[in-house]
Amino acid sequence: RSRTTFTAEQLEELEKAFERTHYPDIYTREELAQRTKLTEARVQVWFSNRRARWRK
Rank of each mutant, 00 (worst) to 15 (best):
R1T: 15
S2Q: 08
S2K: 03
R3K: 15
R3S: 13
T5N: 15
F6Y: 06
F6S: 03
T7A: 05
T7Y: 06
A8E: 15
A8R: 12
A8Q: 12
Q10K: 00
Q10L: 02
Q10P: 01
Q10A: 06
L11N: 06
L11T: 11
E12P: 02
E12G: 10
E12C: 05
L14F: 02
L14E: 00
A17H: 00
A17Q: 15
F18Q: 02
F18T: 02
F18S: 02
E19A: 14
E19S: 08
R20H: 08
H22N: 06
H22E: 06
Y23H: 07
Y23S: 06
D25H: 02
D25S: 05
I26N: 07
I26V: 14
Y27D: 11
Y27L: 13
Y27H: 10
Y27W: 11
T28A: 15
R29C: 10
R29N: 04
E30K: 10
E30D: 12
E30V: 06
E30M: 15
E30L: 15
E31I: 10
L32R: 02
L32V: 08
L32F: 04
L32E: 00
A33E: 03
A33V: 08
Q34S: 13
R35A: 07
R35I: 07
R35D: 06
R35C: 08
R35V: 10
R35L: 10
T36C: 12
T36I: 12
T36W: 09
T36N: 03
K37N: 13
L38G: 03
L38E: 02
T39A: 03
T39G: 04
E40C: 08
E40H: 15
E40F: 07
E40W: 04
A41E: 15
A41H: 05
V43K: 00
V43N: 04
V43H: 00
Q44V: 08
Q44Y: 15
Q44I: 06
V45E: 14
V45K: 09
V45Q: 15
V45L: 14
W46P: 02
W46Q: 00
F47W: 02
F47Q: 00
F47Y: 06
S48M: 15
S48V: 07
S48L: 10
S48T: 14
R50Q: 13
R50V: 00
R51L: 06
R51F: 04
A52N: 15
A52W: 09
A52Q: 09
A52K: 07
R53T: 12
R53K: 10
W54V: 11
W54I: 14
W54Q: 12
R55S: 11
K56V: 15
